[in-house]
């Protein structure tokens, strides 16, 4: 039993198969919503799954001039990192399978591992599109990482804990969204930056650099990267909902809150023109200042007022 539990946790629920399915489902919701906003019909419900299945059966071309070990290993590392985060967040309203003080920091950095793997995969090949894409991915990572982290630590401070479960319980009685609106917006937009969604999709701007860091990927590697991103999306949404939207206590809470966030995300995606990379960096410079300003206010006013 002692062994079976962790195995189930890792392979089926909450990480593993379950979060993969939820990830693909959320990917579909996102695509469908964006399509509706753009006056298109959009994909059928099984399309993301079908894409992944198709990619798994396609030949994986390993181009000349790449280190094959990294080329194959990096997508797996990305997916592994993304799946690990699913163990610590309150998916479907249940407590994280594992938790320890400071797991919030671990989750945030595991999410960055996904992006780092992508960037490394891009710079591992000789393709110019991949190289530029990797550079842009890293540039973007450095610009949003600090404000994103600061935005997630805001709730941690008021809850006096860096443990996701504790913050979640605390948030159940406090809508931190109302006291830290700036943090919420930055966290949500930071997630868009992490997922490279429009308008922060310069790293994979198809009209300039085809698919950015993933240009040379086909078949299995591409499918795994896509799955990692899908998982990242679910975990990110769960984290923001738990921290800012009054916590997640039960499945209805989970689906309602994350889907509302996804609706916002889809809306933002269809509203904007892609930012050039230097515009993205500039945007995040202001975002970092804003979130810092909020911290200063928190410190000045004291935690008593905010909590």
């Amino acid at each position: 039993m002692n062994i079976l539990g962790p195995i189930i946790n890792v392979l089926f629920f909450p990480a593993g198969l379950f979060v993969l399915i939820i990830g693909l489902a959320y990917l579909w919701v996102d695509r469908k919503l964006v399509a509706q906003f753009q006056n298109r019909i959009g994909p059928r419900w099984f399309q993301p799954l079908a894409d992944v299945v198709k990619l798994f059966f396609k030949e994986e071309v390993v181009p000349d001039g790449v280190d094959a070990r990294f080329f194959v290993g990096l997508p797996i590392l990305a997916l592994a990192a993304a799946l690990t985060t699913a163990l610590y967040v309150p998916l479907v309203g249940l407590q994280g399978a594992y938790n320890f003080p400071g797991d919030l920091i671990v989750v945030v950095y595991l999410l960055s591992v996904v992006t780092m793997s992508l960037a490394l995969a891009g710079s591992n090949t000789a393709s110019r599109f991949s190289l530029i894409g990797a550079t842009r991915t890293l540039t973007q990572l450095f610009s949003y990482e600090a404000p994103f982290l600061l935005a997630l630590l805001g709730p941690a401070i008021v809850a006096h804990s860096w443990q996701i479960n504790t913050i979640n319980t605390y948030a159940g009685t406090h809508w931190i969204l109302l006291t830290q609106p700036i943090g919420f917006v930055i966290a949500l937009v930071g997630l868009m930056g992490k997922l490279e969604l429009p308008p922060f999709d310069a790293p994979e701007a198809e009209t300039e650099i085809v698919a950015g860091a993933m240009t040379d990927y086909s078949g299995r590697g591409l499918a795994i990267f896509q799955l990692a991103k899908a998982v990242e999306m679910v975990v990110g949404l769960t984290l923001i909902a738990a921290l800012y939207l009054g916590g997640i206590g039960n499945p209805i809470d989970f689906f309602a809150k994350t889907l509302i966030l996804l609706l916002f995300l889809a809306g933002l995606q269809s509203l904007f023109t892609r930012f050039r990379i230097e515009q993205t960096v500039k945007w995040w410079r202001y975002a970092a200042l804003l979130v810092l300003a909020q911290w200063v206010i928190m410190v000045v006013l004291g935690q008593g007022v905010l909590s």
Binding site: F37, Q38, N39, T207
Partner: peptide, 16 residues
């Protein structure tokens, strides 16, 4: 042109 700028919504609307 909207598509090149990454403004997919304008692209879809104008083509509709």
């Amino acid at each position: 042109a909207a598509h090149e700028a990454g403004f997919e919504t304008l692209f879809m609307y104008s083509w509709r």
